[in-house]
Computed example of a mutant assay.
Amino acid sequence: MDAVLVARRRPRTLALELVDALGDRIRDGRLAAGDKLPTEAAIMQEFGVSRTVVREAISKLQASGLVSTRHGIGTFVVGLGDSASFRIAPEQFATLRDVIAVLELRIGVETEAAGLAAGRRSAENLRNMRHALDAFAAATEAGRDAVGPDFQFHLEIARATQNEHFAELMASLGTMIIPRARLEAAAAPAAVEPLSEERRGYLRRVNGEHESIYDAIVNQDAEAARAAMRTHLANSRERRRRASAAAGAADATT
Rank of each mutant, 00 (worst) to 15 (best):
L126F: 06
T175H: 14
E164V: 13
R182S: 15
E124P: 00
L126W: 01
N163S: 07
A190P: 00
R121M: 04
H154A: 10
G108F: 15
V109S: 08
I107Y: 11
D98L: 08
V192C: 02
V99E: 08
V147H: 15
M129E: 05
M176W: 14
N163H: 13
G108H: 14
G174Q: 12
F151C: 01
A186T: 04
L116Q: 09
P179D: 12
A160K: 09
F136A: 06
T175S: 13
V192Q: 11
M129Y: 09
G119I: 00
G115L: 03
I178N: 13
T161I: 03
R127E: 14
E104T: 12
L116A: 04
A190V: 09
G174I: 13
N128G: 03
H165W: 14
D150I: 01
A114W: 08
E124G: 00
A132V: 02
S172E: 14
F151P: 00
A186D: 10
V102C: 05
E112H: 04
D134F: 05
I157G: 04
E164A: 14
I157W: 05
A190D: 12
A167T: 09
R121N: 13
A137C: 05
L195F: 08
A138D: 09
R120W: 06
L116S: 01
V147R: 08
Q152L: 14
L116D: 02
A190F: 14
A118R: 00
A191M: 10
G143Y: 09
R120E: 09
M170G: 06
R120M: 10
A138Y: 03
L173S: 10
V109Q: 14
I177S: 15
N128A: 11
A142R: 13
E168W: 11
T161N: 02
G119A: 01
E184D: 14
A160W: 03
A188W: 06
F136S: 04
P179A: 10
T111G: 05
M129C: 02
V109M: 13
H154G: 10
V99K: 10
A101R: 11
A113C: 03
A113P: 09
G119C: 01
L105W: 04
A123I: 10
I178D: 11
A191H: 12
M129W: 04
F166E: 01
T175Y: 03
F166Y: 15
I100P: 02
M129V: 03
A114E: 08
